[in-house]
Design a protein around this nucleic acid. Structure first.
Lengths: 352, 352
DNA sequence: CCGCTTCGTCGAAACGCTTCGACGATCATT
DNA sequence: AATGATCGTCGAAGCGTTTCGACGAAGCGG
């Protein structure tokens, strides 16, 4: 393995000159540069990352910290990762995936103090997230994907839940729907202060009210069974409902199953919009789901770019940005068949 | 940020002694050790990863190389990652996730030569995978998840497709099924030499033949539409089919949709077994899918453990291991309703 | 009690790079 | 023509560890 000294010797220059060619920190004449480059190519030279990191006090490694609980990464989280990884490698950084959950704060502290990570992107941020404090105390540059409750002094990118919900509701209202139910995450999740669940709830209330409609929200456990139960509850609360907005990527399949089980067809009897959903998941259903597609990989990319900008000294101010999900109309939404019947029971209509 | 010298000074010993306490490379008296440990605690000392890496020529960073194509990571791949990450951090290594696909071999060469990675786990290995060659040439210790065609001299862990298929078929035959169709990946994927597709195909043929049954395999595109088309083809080939084994996590939802569309109920009319599937995905369907659950996180863990064992010098021989998927019976398989009718057309039975 | 290991510690030399100060040489400015 | 800047390069001093050789102090068989 050739070192910088070997290159310098072969090129007939000093080691520091080689370094300047590599880093561009000082001007080098074209002739010298060419000699050095030729020597590097001839020796198949690759700079040693450790030595470079030690000398420059910058590892050029970025950490992507994610909870990695037992249920793994959904398509949306995966998109964060891929987007971030691509962005990082595009600007010459490496991305370290670290499975640091909420539990092992000491692990996190250790990781942060080892000077191995130049900066960190934190995923799955809770409204009150201790990891943020730990990282800040360790002095590690930080960008969140998601938001804590108090975001002063923090950089983040997050989904614009307000606008996303507004668009979803507008789409349905535009089709003629009036009785729209919002199926959210579970009551426990809401109670724990999970940002997306709370923010979409509020947004739904305000969007529906804006259209002069009654906002009905039903919580659902994160499972197919939870979705089924939630749909039953929805029909009990809003008998003539013609549309469902669902935030719960897991429950949605239960909702669809229950709809079919009741002999109701999608979208003829009931329209369904899935929130913050990846195209891959939306396509799994039959018919494919009209969904608010999460800007997952974009979020990851922006987070990395903001972080790197900060590390490189360009732009020292905080980066705070919200991105809406894009409405992608597929087969699960249509005009409501009937002008909202007044009957209370879900009529045993024969399915399509 | 305290350094080793600070610790040494405070403890009244030489820096090298502090190093020996940390690494255990030489015996240190209990008294000295205590002094040093106390000094480290008092200064909140954390060794500098870069310096350690440079001096010891071991970064204690492991790479997990994955293609990261546009469609992201499925639940199974995610399980590899989580398992590997957990195992790595358990033995004091960091895991670098690197989105090095098949295209950018130069990126890979560079990454491998930077001496930043002590070793590498390669995912999504193809039958002929150039990345293996590149890594071997760069002299990077390597473990595969999956297998190339020729595995001599390579360490790997992979799914035991033989046994997995055998068990799936045995389950269905045990229930009384005779006309079983295997829905595989696409013809193009098969042609490209994708190991899992080829190995399961051969295993299916041998398993069915072992039961004296005719093995029918249908390729399917990786999409819901592909699944639908494949099911139609399956009925054309095997009119009275009562069971489907599907390898295609994406197509399976199309298969289910088409089944429902034909008025056939799962599992009463047709049983379905999904291969190499995570519980999360299996639960999305209604009814939940009987599936061969992939040992994803175990695979990741074993790969890392084999790699670390090799790096630490213990056990220099190759690690080659196959793990079967576990049969998890859910709601999509049952005894066949009818003793295999002879009619050719899919009868327009009214669904349940 | 003499020479031998073994134990515990130290000092110094790497590890391969970045970066700082210095210094001719070139070039524009008065 | 004298005076600074600026350019291009060099040598050397780190960066914070690990690791090697050395060495006094024990411990021990004979």
């Amino acid at each position: 393995m050739a070192t910088m000294h070997d290159v310098a010797r072969l090129a007939g220059v000093s080691p520091s000159t080689v370094s300047y060619v590599l880093t561009g920190t000082r001007p080098i004449s074209q002739a010298t540069r060419d000699k050095v480059l030729a020597a590097m190519a001839q020796l198949d030279y690759q700079p040693n990352a450790m030595a470079r990191g030690l000398a420059s006090r910058r590892s050029r490694i970025l950490g992507l910290l994610m909870p990695m609980d037992e249920r793994g990464l959904g398509a949306t989280e995966t998109a964060f990762v891929t987007g971030a990884a691509a962005a990082a490698s595009a600007v010459g950084y490496h991305l370290v995936l670290s499975p640091v959950g909420g539990g092992n704060l000491d692990d996190l502290r250790r990781l942060a103090s080892q000077r191995m990570l130049d900066g960190v992107v934190l995923m799955e941020v809770q409204l009150a997230d201790e990891r943020v404090t730990v990282l800040q105390e360790a002095g590690v540059p930080l960008v969140l994907i998601g938001r804590t409750g108090d975001t002063t002094g923090l950089s983040y990118v997050d989904i614009d839940f307000e606008q996303t919900v507004r668009e979803a509701v507008a789409h349905l209202v535009g089709l003629g729907h009036r009785r729209i139910v919002y199926v959210n995450h579970s009551a426990a999740t809401l109670a724990s202060g999970y940002g997306p669940a709370l923010r979409t709830r509020d947004a739904f209330v305000s969007a529906m009210s804006g259209h002069g409609l009654e906002p009905v929200m039903i919580p659902a456990e994160d499972s197919a069974a939870g979705g089924r139960a939630a749909l039953a509850a929805a029909f009990a609360r809003t008998p003539g409902l013609t549309a469902v907005v669902a935030m719960n990527e897991t429950a949605i399949f239960g909702i669809l199953g229950e709809l079919t089980g009741r002999g109701l067809s999608v979208p003829d009897d009931v329209s369904v919009v899935s929130m913050v959903t990846s195209p891959q998941v939306a396509e799994l259903a039959t018919p494919a789901l009209t969904a608010m597609t999460s800007p997952g990989s974009t979020l990851g990319r922006i987070a990395i770019e903001a972080l790197v900008r900060h590390l490189d000294g360009r732009g020292n101010e905080r980066h705070q940005q919200l991105l809406p999900c894009a409405l992608e109309i597929r087969g699960s939404t249509a005009e409501p068949r009937r002008p909202a019947p007044a009957s209370a029971e879900p009529s045993p209509t024969s399915g399509g």
